[in-house]
Computed example of a mutant assay.
Amino acid sequence: MTVITRVRGDITEQHVDAVVNAANSSLLGGGGVDGAIHRRGGPEILAACRELRAAHLGGGLPTGQAVATTAGRLPARWVIHTVGPVHSTTEDRSALLASCYRESLRIAAELGARTVALPAISTGVYRWPLADAARIALAASRAAAASGAFTELRFVLFDDRAYRAFDPAQPTAPDAPPAG
């Protein structure tokens, strides 16, 4: 049985099989979660990302897709990089955000990862509203948990506001009131 949990903390300090990285499409590092993972994980992650770019991702990783690399110096085996969508008030991009979680967890299952640390994808500089992001993330995580491939899916959240929004006890149905 999979447990969906949440902690307030630093995703780079999680002792798990796989860490999901809210990456940018270049895969070459950036700010926020992406920058922290690249800094703490060391040059091995960047080298693996460069290899992916040279092999088959020359144009970068498309939004909503995911790819795995070594975790370098992180206390995990793999980093699964995914590119979240920028929030828009004029276009519904929620399917892309859900795809980030689905694809990341599909890859984690293929790798045999039993424990996975996940960030609040797209809620930083991409401005996705926390309550809506949490609803989408929790729904996708519950669907992946039903596969039985995982023992724990752990949301690692940077501040109290995000921690409250990502309460696994919150409903995630599309017509449910937003979490938070």
Rank of each mutant, 00 (worst) to 15 (best):
A165Q: 09
V83M: 07
T82K: 05
A98L: 02
G72V: 03
G84M: 01
R114N: 14
V83A: 05
F166K: 11
F158E: 07
R102K: 08
E103A: 15
R164Q: 15
T115N: 14
A149L: 05
A169Q: 14
R142F: 07
L138W: 02
I80E: 06
A143Q: 11
A131C: 05
G148D: 04
Q65I: 00
R135S: 03
S94I: 04
R77I: 08
A137H: 08
L74Y: 06
D160T: 14
A108P: 12
A131Q: 08
I136G: 01
A120V: 11
L105R: 06
E103K: 13
G148T: 03
F155I: 07
P168T: 14
A162S: 15
V79Y: 09
A108D: 14
R135K: 15
S122Y: 11
A71V: 00
L138P: 02
A165E: 10
A144D: 06
F158N: 07
V79G: 05
R93M: 02
L157H: 14
R161F: 00
A131I: 05
H87R: 10
A144M: 12
A146I: 04
D92E: 04
A95M: 02
P129F: 14
L105Y: 09
S88M: 04
T90N: 06
D159P: 08
H87C: 05
A71N: 01
A162W: 11
V67A: 00
T151R: 15
A134Y: 05
A165G: 07
D160M: 01
F166G: 09
R106A: 14
F158M: 02
A133Y: 07
A120P: 10
R102L: 09
A131S: 14
L111R: 15
